Simulated scan of single mutants.
Amino acid sequence: MDYNAAGSAGSNKGPNNAEYLALVQKRIDTFLMVHPYLKKGEIPSDMVTASGSGLDPNISPQGALIQVKRVAAARNLPEEKVKALVETKINNPAIIGTSTVNVLKLNVALDELK
């Protein structure tokens, strides 16, 4: 697996719910295990939380960029090449909203690099 959207299931639990907080902490721990070069404070929240449906195919540009090192190593590609590709896949909103990266489209583009 290369780039991934956070979480596999949505949540309707509030940010103070103990069960939800434990799940987020578990996701943080897992993320840090596969990205040992990061510190907890560097992980964008979308990497350890899930959309309401858990089906959002997008992650933040920050979420994609902090995974460059791992993905480049896994695919045996230069980090600069993977970073440049991520930057071309950033979707900026026309008027308002947040920038996103579509994980599926990014992974397909990575496949095409080989």
Rank of each mutant, 00 (worst) to 15 (best):
L55G: 04
P93Q: 10
V86P: 03
N91I: 15
L55C: 10
V68W: 12
P61T: 14
N4V: 10
K83N: 10
V24K: 06
G52P: 02
I66W: 00
T100Y: 10
N76L: 03
A94R: 10
K39A: 10
A72I: 03
N4L: 14
I96D: 00
A109F: 01
T30H: 08
L65F: 01
D29L: 01
Q25L: 12
A9R: 08
M47T: 09
P36C: 10
M33K: 15
S60D: 09
E79C: 11
L77A: 06
A84T: 04
K105H: 04
Y3D: 03
P61Y: 14
V103M: 02
L32R: 06
K39S: 08
A72L: 12
S99V: 03
K26L: 15
N76E: 08
G14W: 12
L104D: 13
Q67Y: 07
G63F: 13
N102F: 04
L106H: 04
K114E: 14
S8A: 14
G54F: 07
P78M: 12
L104I: 10
A18N: 07
G14H: 05
D29S: 09
R27F: 07
V101I: 09
S45C: 11
A18F: 06
S45E: 14
E19C: 03
G10S: 08
S99T: 04
P57H: 05
S51A: 13
N12W: 08
N17V: 06
Y20I: 01
H35N: 09
E87R: 01
A5Y: 02
P44V: 11
N92K: 15
L32M: 09
K39W: 00
P93L: 07
V86Y: 07
V71S: 02
A74Q: 10
L106D: 00
P57Y: 11
A18Q: 09
A94K: 15
G54N: 01
P15L: 13
L23P: 00
G63M: 15
K81Y: 00
V82P: 00
N16C: 09
V24F: 08
V34N: 07
